[in-house]
């Protein structure tokens, strides 16, 4: 076949071949550069993380022992004692906050996703309300936590005269995590295939039966993720609880008791005492809890995925 080509044509063919070759090389080089760059960014991020955690752990873990975990803080300029009551207070606060925020948040999300559209068609007023509520949730999600704290202080602590207490802190904390729960639940509900709803309604189930029987069970993994995220948020929050929970390191006796969470304890140790090593030790415990929570999210979502896909 080549014999039929003229010299001119052969030249053009050769040039084309060469240019195609160099093109491939150029593309390969630019791809390699991009890959290297991305690798470096990734490594930098990991390095910073390892540095922080490593610093806290190496400096902090020396103070951590069974005694540290089981004795109550003794106060004082040297930050004496352990962290036992702060752990318990943290657990109390998490449970109390979530028992308010979870039903409210999940309920609101169900309304937004499953019912709002339908209701909006019925009246302009409802449509307007829903729009306001949605915008509200979005704005709340972006509000700095100290604002929630000030709000809680102004409304719960002062105006409602609940004082520095688990109750004030729980209500303020609920305001803080409500947007998180609403948004993650909304996302989880939206991720439930429309075909499940159609399938259920097509069988003659009511809307409510559909939501309870099919939609919620399917959305559980997403909702659980949202709740675990909220737990993390409550555990790591300082600003809100600083102005609503007080700072007492005694074990709270009831909802009206003041208290001190782990994060708050870290803050107070660091700012009001000389026991910086204990602050780091408490921080190490906090980081460990957060890590365990993340692990729990991963494991639970894997478990649910497995259960839902039936494999």
């Amino acid at each position: 076949m080549n014999q039929s080509l003229t010299d001119q044509e052969k030249k053009i063919l050769a040039r084309e071949k060469a240019s195609r070759k160099s093109n491939i090389q150029r593309r390969r080089i630019s791809q390699n550069i991009a890959f290297t760059f991305l690798w470096l960014i990734g490594l930098a991020a990991i390095a910073i993380l390892v540095w922080i955690i490593g610093y806290v752990f190496t400096k902090g873990l020396s103070t951590v022992n069974l005694e540290f975990l089981t004795t109550r803080p003794a106060g004082g300029f040297d930050g004496e004692g352990g962290i036992s009551t702060t752990i318990v207070t943290t657990v109390y606060l998490v449970i109390f906050t979530l028992s308010i925020a979870a039903p409210l948040g999940i309920g609101a999300a169900i309304y937004f996703v499953e019912y709002a559209n339908e209701a909006q068609n019925r009246s302009k007023f409802i449509q307007w309300l829903v729009r306001i509520a949605r915008t509200g949730v979005e704005v709340l999600a972006g509000v700095p936590s100290i604002i929630f704290g000030l709000f809680g202080f102004a409304v719960f602590v002062s105006y409602m005269k609940l004082g520095f207490s688990l109750l004030s802190a729980g209500l303020s904390g609920a305001c803080l995590v409500l947007p998180v729960i609403i948004r993650t639940t909304e996302e989880a509900l939206l991720a439930v295939p429309e075909s499940y709803r159609e399938g259920s309604l097509g069988l003659g189930a009511t809307k409510w039966q559909t939501v309870i029987g099919v939609v919620l069970p399917t959305a559980i993994p997403g909702i659980v993720t949202g709740i675990v995220l909220s737990v993390g948020r409550i555990i790591s929050e300082t600003a809100v609880f600083w102005v609503t929970l007080g700072g007492s390191y005694r074990l709270p006796q009831n909802l009206m008791s003041s208290g001190r969470t782990l994060a708050l304890h870290v803050y107070m140790l660091a700012t009001e005492t000389r026991a910086f090593d204990k602050a780091l030790g408490t921080s190490a415990i906090l980081i460990m809890i957060i890590m365990i929570l993340n692990l729990a999210i991963n494991l639970s979502s894997k478990y649910f995925q497995k259960r839902l896909s039936g494999k």
Partner: peptide
């Protein structure tokens, strides 16, 4: 009505 008129959809949609 839907009790009397069942439906099967385009994509199989068994519940999880």
């Amino acid at each position: 009505l839907r009790k009397q008129v069942g439906m099967v959809f385009q994509r199989p949609n068994p519940f999880p």
